Computed example of a mutant assay.
Amino acid sequence: MHATRRALLGAALATPALAQSFPERGVRYIVPFTPAGLTDIMARIMANRLGEVWQKPVVVENRAGGNAMIGADAVAKSAPDGHSLLAITLTHAVNATMFPQAPYNLLRDLSTISILGSLPLLVVVNAASPIRSLDELAATARARTLNGGSSGNGSPPHLGLELFRRAARAGDNITHVPYRGGAPGVTDLVAGNLDFMVSNLPECISQVQAGRLRALATTGEARHRSLPDIATVSESGMAALSMTNWTAMQLPAATPSAIRRQIEAATLSVLAEPDTRRRILDAGFDVEGLDSARSEAFLRAEVIRWGRLVEEARIRPDA
Score class of each variant (00 low, 15 high):
Met243Pro: 09
Gly154Asp: 05
Thr247Ala: 15
Pro130Met: 07
Arg261Tyr: 04
Trp246Asn: 06
Gly211Glu: 13
Thr175Phe: 07
Ser151Thr: 10
Ser155Ile: 05
Leu227Ser: 06
Gly192Leu: 10
Thr232Arg: 00
Ile230Thr: 13
Ala254Val: 02
Gly160Trp: 13
Met197Asn: 05
Leu189Pro: 09
Arg260Tyr: 03
Pro184Val: 13
Pro156Glu: 12
Leu189Trp: 12
Leu251Val: 07
Glu203Ala: 13
Ser133Asp: 04
Arg169Pro: 01
Thr247Ser: 13
Ile263Thr: 01
Ala183Gln: 11
Ile263Pro: 01
Leu189Arg: 11
Ala143Lys: 07
Leu201Trp: 06
Asp172Ile: 00
Leu159Cys: 14
Ala240Met: 14
Leu134Tyr: 00
Arg132Val: 12
Ile230Lys: 04
Ala191Val: 03
Ala168Met: 14
Leu146Met: 06
Gln262Thr: 03
Leu137Arg: 06
Ala239Leu: 12
Gln250Pro: 01
Leu159Trp: 15
Glu203Val: 01
Leu161Val: 14
Leu201His: 04
Leu201Pro: 00
Arg214Gln: 09
Ser199Val: 05
Leu134Gln: 00
Ala170Tyr: 11
Trp246Glu: 03
Pro178Leu: 08
Met197Cys: 12
Gly211Met: 04
Asp229Pro: 02
Ser199Phe: 07
Asp188Pro: 05
Ala222Arg: 09
Thr175Glu: 14
Ser129Val: 03
Gly211Gln: 08
Ile259Cys: 15
Val186Cys: 12
His158Glu: 15
Pro252Asp: 11
Ala191Arg: 15
Pro157Asp: 10
Ile259Trp: 14
Glu235Gly: 06
Leu251Tyr: 01
Glu235Val: 03
Leu241Pro: 04
Arg142Val: 10
Ala167Tyr: 01
Ile174Trp: 02
Leu201Val: 07
Pro228Asn: 06
Ser236Met: 10
Asp195Tyr: 04
Ala210Tyr: 05
Ile230Glu: 02
Arg214Phe: 00
Ala248Asp: 00
Ser150Phe: 08
Ala191Lys: 14
Asp172Phe: 04
Pro252Gln: 12
Arg142Asn: 11
Cys204Gln: 01
Cys204Met: 03
Leu216Gly: 00
Ala215Asp: 02
Ile230Leu: 05
Val233His: 00
Arg225Gly: 04
Asn245Thr: 12
Trp246Arg: 03
Gly152Trp: 05
Pro130Gly: 02
Leu163Arg: 14
Arg132Gln: 14
Leu201Met: 08
Met238Thr: 00
Glu221Met: 07
Asn173Glu: 11
Ala141Ser: 15
Gly237Gln: 08
Cys204Val: 09
Thr218Leu: 06
Val208Lys: 00
Thr244Trp: 04
Ala248Arg: 01
Arg180Ala: 10
Arg166Cys: 03
Gly182Tyr: 03
Ser206Lys: 07
